[in-house]
Design a protein around this nucleic acid. Sequence first.
DNA 1: CTCTTACAGTTTAATATTAAACTATCTCTG
DNA 2: CAGAGATAGTTTAATATTAAACTGTAAGAG
Lengths: 150, 150
Amino acid sequence: MTQSTSKNRDQDEALSAYVKLMRAAGSITHRVHGNLAEEKLSVSQFGVLEALYHLGPVCQRDLARKILKSSGNLTMVVRNLEQRKLVKRTRSSDDRRYYQIQLTTAGRDLIERLFPAHASRIADEFKLLDQSELEALQRICRKLGLQVEG
Amino acid sequence: MTQSTSKNRDQDEALSAYVKLMRAAGSITHRVHGNLAEEKLSVSQFGVLEALYHLGPVCQRDLARKILKSSGNLTMVVRNLEQRKLVKRTRSSDDRRYYQIQLTTAGRDLIERLFPAHASRIADEFKLLDQSELEALQRICRKLGLQVEG
DNA sequence: CTCTTACAGTTTAATATTAAACTATCTCTG
DNA sequence: CAGAGATAGTTTAATATTAAACTGTAAGAG
């Protein structure tokens, strides 16, 4: 049963990698977003502001894919941000199914104020990796993240 | 401003790694847990069953740390599993603050039935990494996951 | 012993999240 | 153009999640 045990070994190694990957991602998220509550922002709300900051105006579908949440949830997240005048929704004129979501001036001010500390916390998390590890991590995660859904 | 630009470059690289790490973890979670709904199990419930399966009886605090959820949430998750007779809670006699949570026979049967397909889905996710990548990923994620909280 | 402090778990109230059904719009095919 | 199917976003109802205040138990200092 050489084949079978080799397969089991692969599976065990994959499981171990999976657990470590999840723990790393989870604990980093936890630490990086720990002081978001001070601004009365949820992780998803912050994620949307950040995405708009980096990508410019996009539609809700793209935001949902970006922050890995359901479209229904995005309706709620964007609505709450809109009520706080942090984002603006405008229907696309050439395809009226779409809304273009974009930062308001207040939203841009907020994310510009929060982003430096955010980036610095992230940099701290990765500080103990050397350059080659940082590159390897990115290459590997790109492979893992790109696989087909479903 | 050599120092400053080098620092910015480090920060950009960390940000890029962070995004890729989160995307990899998120999309893998999504795919791996995609068919948990069929068993009427939430991701957290499955995580608890799996932890108990691998660790044996543990207290709720340890379960909370394992699945990265709040203690309040664990009370709820464990209660729901208990109502479905999948786990059993017994107060520790030497320190009555603790509950020992353990699988019932039904709980063990369930996780033993679900785990093989679960492990196989995970193995599929990591299949496109070669051995050295798998090792590098684990080593790097261990470093990242172990940093001090707060 | 008793007071203080710490800790495991619970409760509560507010919010976030999801799946699924639904509306509105677009696109393609004939 | 009409109808079928796809797509963006919304709603709804059920559940999950959290922070914070709380209860009960333990441990250590004086």
